[in-house]
């Protein structure tokens, strides 16, 4: 019984924090990019625009839910839910902190301590591609259709590179469980971060994560200047908000995986352990540093073209991640 309560409380806490996070990640993005572009970002609603995300959410909730006349109604309605479901369900395996004991009960750092956590995340993020392609197909709009084609092609190709880049980590840690991977890193040479011995893997993962979440410079599926808005061009109101939240949740998941697999998870940054003990704060700080880099890239780089994106994925990133796997294997055999 107590177990069930703990699980329910954890689910409630994680989901509410995740949704609030989505709102304030968009605020963070607008502020960071605003200041990089010599402007202020949101300033009107609340102190320094702090209530802006809430206002946006309320606005989207009350907007009319428009379904185009010739759209495939059911698929059109289901597609954003698939996207959102894929993004939200990934969060159950994200390890926020190391497990600890309250009396006889162990409180795990994640909602579900799956043995195949990493695989689960990859599977769920692929599920999002269905939402994207179905939404583009069901909208009965050529722009949305082109956007969804681009997105599905992109997600599929970059998923390969992303999966391959994580294999090095799995080989070093010997586990697919994200908590175990974090634990295993503590003893890794030289900093307790896999980002150092697995540097190619880390770099590939970060680039693939940008592509996976449709961020600049890989934001072709929603390239505003080419496809207006891409696959969600026809969506309005809360269905649009679901896509929006799925995108930000996707960013969070990708950053969380990068932190767990390469940057030592909830453990302190090497040499800074005296400031705070290991815990969820370290995890969130690292995640937000990665977020900051996401935004920085967005405000700096132009956009790739479709064929260049594919060439980069297949001809550059996949060979490098394969070479990385071979080198990691040799390393494991020799040492």
């Amino acid at each position: 019984m107590l177990n069930l309560i703990i699980i329910l409380v954890k689910i409630a806490v994680v989901i509410s924090i995740a949704l609030l996070h989505v709102a304030y990640a968009s605020y963070f993005e607008r502020k960071v990019i605003g200041h990089m572009q010599v402007r202020m970002g949101p300033m009107e609603v609340g102190w320094h625009g702090l209530l802006q995300p809430i206002a946006d959410g309320i606005k989207l909730l009350f907007k009319e839910d428009i379904i185009p006349a010739n759209a495939d109604r059911h698929v059109f309605m289901i597609a954003p839910m698939i996207c959102f479901f894929g993004a939200m369900s990934s969060i159950v395996v994200v390890p926020f902190f190391g497990s600890f004991k309250i009396g006889a009960y162990t409180v795990g750092g994640s909602l579900a301590d799956l043995n195949i956590g990493l695989l689960f995340i990859l599977a769920m993020s692929s599920l999002g591609a269905y939402g994207v392609i179905l939404s583009g197909w069901a909208s009965n709009s050529k722009y949305a259709f082109l956007g969804s084609l681009r997105s599905s092609a992109q997600v599929i190709s970059y998923e390969v590179a992303m999966g391959l880049s994580l294999i090095g980590v799995i080989m070093l840690s010997g586990s697919l469980n994200l908590s175990d991977i974090v634990e295993a890193q503590a003893s890794a040479w030289p900093l307790g971060w896999y980002a150092v011995p697995q540097f190619p893997g880390f770099a590939i993962f970060c680039i693939a994560a940008l592509a996976e979440t449709n961020r600049t410079p890989f934001d072709l599926p929603e390239a505003e200047s080419e496809l207006v808005a891409g696959y969600f061009a026809e969506y309005s109101g809360f269905r649009f908000a679901l896509f929006f939240m799925a995108e930000y949740m996707g960013m969070f998941i990708m950053a969380a995986v990068a932190v767990a697999c390469f940057l030592g998870g909830w453990n302190p940054v090497p040499g800074l352990g005296w400031i705070f003990p290991p815990g969820v704060w370290w995890f969130l700080v690292k995640v937000y540093v990665l977020f900051f880099i996401y935004f920085w890239v967005r405000s700096t780089l132009p956009r790739y073209r479709y064929d260049q994106l594919m060439a980069l994925g297949w001809k550059f990133m996949i060979p490098i991640s394969l070479a990385n796997i071979i080198l990691t294997g040799l390393w494991k055999v020799v040492f």
Partner: peptide, 16 residues
Amino acid sequence: HALDIGAMTVFLYTFR
């Protein structure tokens, strides 16, 4: 031109 190709920041710099 830069905004069309995806470089967003140039847009705001030039408007200054």
